[in-house]
Design a protein around this nucleic acid. Structure first.
Lengths: 223, 223, 223, 223
DNA sequence: TATGAATGAGCTTTCATTCAT
DNA sequence: CATGAATGAAAGCTCATTCAT
């Protein structure tokens, strides 16, 4: 974690450092990032960096923490409409929030994505983070089976893997589809939002259909 | 591409260099790899490296090329039983080959995987490779629609994305599931192979069911 | 010399700074000592250090001064029993005091010892301090010759050098012989004190015999 | 130990590096020495230093090794006249050689001296070297007792300590007495040599008298 | 072709010192 | 007086690359 000095910094300066650090890691990756380049860009003295952070790793972990924190905040801001939602309705709600966040914070989202695909301090770190994510999806599906939303014959491991693999790179994919300039944020009523929604629907439709409860399928009120 | 000097090398020496290069990139990533460390490990002179390759990037691209080549070779060795297979039967055949190859070449597979998830010379490079892969799956599905194997109402973009996202990290996932020692290769009749097959079946079942032709399935008002 | 600010400090705070400074110099030497490490250990602000001292050198010289002062105080506390002692009786008295002091202040004693053997601001500084010490012993011996305690044929330079060389590292040697824990101070009636006294006697015996007035010793053809 | 690269260097270049390294350590001590300063003085690239040595410590230990080696070589060049010498005759012979060497290599001698008085990689290192030296003198004296040259009642620990303490700084003392310019080497027939011999005699006289066999002293048939 | 010494730019990190609060 | 953030020089060390042998 950054040192108190960092948090005592004026808001704008701190933000500028964070922004440039995100840019640095997003551009060059965990191993390619350079303190020298960062402080030059930020216009601070090299020694100052060490007043704020232990080292680059410290800063890197803070950025991941920051991203997770902010995304969680976004999700908390719109509580799920029903406590006993089907897994895919839950996902729909979650994705609306998290994709929204990630699309408006593409560089930080990219860092987090790459942290989960091999970039990072160690392979163990990556494996741990990824296992946590897969576990979450697995639990979600298990609960769905209990409530009859999910096919009981489903291979849970396979299904959790499909969800992790598909949803993890989702916002990266969306970002590559819509040619998004860094400042050109996606607005809730813009055409990009509509395109995103459409693709999201197509996606979840495939997944839900592939995993959903198959016996009572006829009266699926969903379609 | 490596220089002619490299290909004139004795087979065993060339292979040792390749193996250690794979190890280097798999361990430290594109940006963390070091020529110094590599030549020290390989026991060759530093100058010799530059007799074989332009630079690290040259070697890196060669490794990717090598992996693609070898995987293609494996696929060519077992031709598809039927020229007009359904997309998922094609995938089943392909995966049997490619997963088999990647599981027995985990370090090189890891490099290729990371090359497609952000590690590499440039973002453009990554995007290009990934687009090629997605295009392939898209074409496969389109052909499947023509032959009636795939739901014509399917969102092709979404489906191609699901396939890319799911199948790309597949062997990495399998490798993490089965605790594989480098020498402990997966043999066709071992228990690990059975476990892999089971998971592969579960996976394709979900995808096929989610994307398959829905019309013959009773009165699905969905499609 | 430290600034007035330092001497206006509360006794305990000032003492803590001195103790930690001693620890710092004793551990890392004159050139290895670090202000950063010291203030971190002492829990004072970096700026405060400069309120108390000009720089590290200032603090260093103060510590030496302090050690000399304290040792002198110890010696003053037990005045010599006879104003016209033989040089070796004088030494015996002096050593009892100074060794006692140094053994109970091993870290500061170590700094002073190293200051006289090459560690310090400059070679001139070292030479000067050492010359003063040698001069003292030389005078002591000269006076001894006058009173008939010391062999008049003695090479005064050589003898003063022997005394300086032997007595300077004495307490360091004793400290290495008795395994002394920092807190485990040598008490006047402990077994360590007895061992020290024995070794001191053996030592002075050699020196006294080697330098002492040789005429009364039968017909020594040597002198 | 330095790397082979270093030993493959042209003689004059290697010698220049050694000379400047000696100068560096002698001037600034173990902790104050700087690679940057050294390479600047030597006119070699910083990277080259690391082609020759692991780090500064590597170079430091090599210098000590070199000094020991050279001194041993000098001693080997003039074998002791009699196999069963008295301890002090042995010392006389040894000192003639070692002091001769050290006086003509004052900077390296200074480094070795300081290595034995607290400057160096660790306190353990210092203690070990010093213990070896003291052990040597102790053995020498013990043998002298057996042969009747040394007073059997002598406190061996105290005596070995006196020898170590006196002889260790000896050449440093001599060097400070004779104002020696670096190039102004002491020649065997110069006036400085005579002064050194005189002081050496005075010194050994004191020590020998102080430790020598005291009872049969009159008819000393040994000499 | 193979070699490995030479190079200097560039890295991370620590440091003493200043100074506004 | 106390504070601790800011600073840039300088440290040790690694690196890719060149080039003479």
């Amino acid at each position: 974690m950054p040192k108190p000095t960092f948090f005592n910094l004026p808001e704008d300066k701190r933000q500028r450092i964070v922004d440039l650090a995100i840019e640095e890691f997003a551009t060059y990756g965990y191993r390619g990032a350079s303190i020298s380049r960062l402080v030059a860009a930020a216009g601070i003295a090299k020694g100052s960096f060490y007043q704020y952070f232990d080292d680059l790793d410290d800063l890197y972990r803070y950025l991941l923490h920051l991203g997770a924190e902010q995304k969680a905040q976004v999700l908390r801001s719109t509580p799920p409409p029903d406590p006993a939602l089907s897994p895919f309705d839950t996902l729909r709600w979650m994705l609306r929030g998290s994709v929204g966040y990630e699309v408006t914070n593409p560089r930080l989202a990219r860092i987090a994505y790459r942290a989960l695909t091999g970039d990072g301090p160690s392979e163990a770190f990556v494996a741990e983070m990824r296992a946590a994510l897969t576990g979450f999806y697995r639990d979600l599906l298990a609960k769905g089976i209990k409530h009859g939303h999910i096919d009981p014959g489903l291979d849970l491991d396979a299904a959790a893997f499909v969800l992790t693999s598909t949803l993890l790179p989702l916002s990266q994919y969306l970002l590559s589809r819509i040619d998004l300039e860094p400042e050109d944020l996606v607005r809730p009523d813009g055409p990009q939002t509509a395109a995103i929604e459409a693709l999201l629907d197509g996606l979840l439709d495939i997944l839900e259909y592939g995993m959903g409860s198959r016996s009572p399928r006829k009266d699926d009120s969903h379609g």
